[in-house]
Design a protein around this nucleic acid. Structure first.
Lengths: 210, 210
DNA sequence: TTTGTTTAATTAACGCTGTTAAGTATTTTT
DNA sequence: AAAAATACTTAACAGCGTTAATTAAACAAA
């Protein structure tokens, strides 16, 4: 079935081109400038052709949201070399903040926009594996720290949600312009790191209480 | 100038009717079903008339966002009777969570949607007074607790941002469907309270360390 | 090779959206 | 009574996501 295979290859090729065009628009012009018609223009097809390869616009954003997670995972490669789990925890938080502040559009589609979740619901995929993997990594790391006595014994789930919640909260407030008049733009990173360090400091068992 | 006054009254009346119609649509059908044409239908004017009273759609959402803050402030009346600032702090956090989970559409337009902030920028209003007032109340309360030795001495700004960030983070993750597959809907409130209580517990100077 | 059938892509259109320009009455002022 | 300002509407622009119907191309079977 060499012919059928070639056909399938070709279809995947077009799917790839649609996603590449979408990514180009997304990266260069931002979320709300990604339109079916502009994608079609870029790949030199008619707008309706896009619908032969993707169910709807949400599905395209689902793939962009996947790319975002890939980028985030790549950034987190720098954790692998850190032996001390507590230092790794601090660094993971730093990575999260860094990623959010330097890739706000990606962060937005990964954690704020509704579009990718719509696809998840529609496909009846009953778990958000990308998100769960990320949060799972945080949970495992916190558990490791706790097991090794590096952080105080605490209800793990509460701490996981508190840490994730805090960093996500600050980043999403910044991205959606709720900190513009409260924290000068150039201080954003500093303020977030202070909050993160303070939070982790409160559970850090290796710090001497002053 | 009785005639000019009457005219002005009439204009304010129509402005009010537009906002009432907008609120009706917002409350009954949600953010994205508030359209200029539907508003116009409700008040029985043509769509263009709306633009005689409001610069654009963002300005209408700015007012809805104000209504949200009013509703939130009203909810926080229950804090006034609490003498102990530490208990007031716990209760303030509870209120925030309660408001977010029970008024997700309001919360969305207050803290997530870009629309109201656009109006702020356009009008060259250089501070988001509603947001700053809310965060100011949290800051003052934390300061009071610290002054009275009810919570541990900590860098106040870091703690303010950490607390606000955490509750906002969890609520916005829930509203934008990032917790759907991680926390069962019926457990959402419980989980958030656990995280809040854990966080406040770590700075609570009145708790005995176990 | 010609016919029939499947596949791929297109054109045209639907029903929306926010917004603006131009026009029409109505009322007020001169 | 004529001119000017006010309030509102009609019509339209320029876009959007999406679907139905249609054409052109590639393939299969006769």
């Amino acid at each position: 079935m060499g012919i059928a295979e070639r056909k399938e290859k070709h279809q995947l090729e077009i799917k790839k081109r649609i996603l590449e065009a979408s990514m180009k628009l997304f990266v260069e012009e931002g979320f709300e400038h990604v339109t079916i018609r502009k994608i079609a223009d870029l790949i030199e097809y008619s707008p309706t052709t896009v619908y032969l390869y993707f169910k709807d616009k949400n599905e395209i954003f689902f793939h962009i949201h996947e790319m975002g997670f890939a980028k985030f995972l790549e950034l987190n490669q720098n954790l692998a070399t850190i032996a001390n789990p507590l230092i790794r925890l601090y660094k993971m938080g730093e990575n999260y903040i860094y990623f959010g502040l330097n890739n706000p559009e990606y962060y937005d589609v990964m954690f704020i926009q509704r579009a990718p979740m719509e696809t998840l619901k529609q496909l009846n995929v009953c778990d958000w594996s990308l998100g769960e993997t990320a949060i799972g990594a945080l949970r495992a790391l916190l558990q490791e720290c706790m097991d090794k006595g590096l952080i105080k014994q605490s209800p793990i789930e509460a701490v996981v949600m508190a840490v994730w919640g805090m960093v996500h909260g600050l980043i999403s407030l910044a991205i959606r312009e709720r900190l513009d008049t409260i924290v000068p733009k150039e201080d954003l990173s500093k303020v977030m790191h202070q909050s993160l360090n303070w939070l982790l400091g409160t559970i850090d068992a290796t710090l001497v209480e002053s």
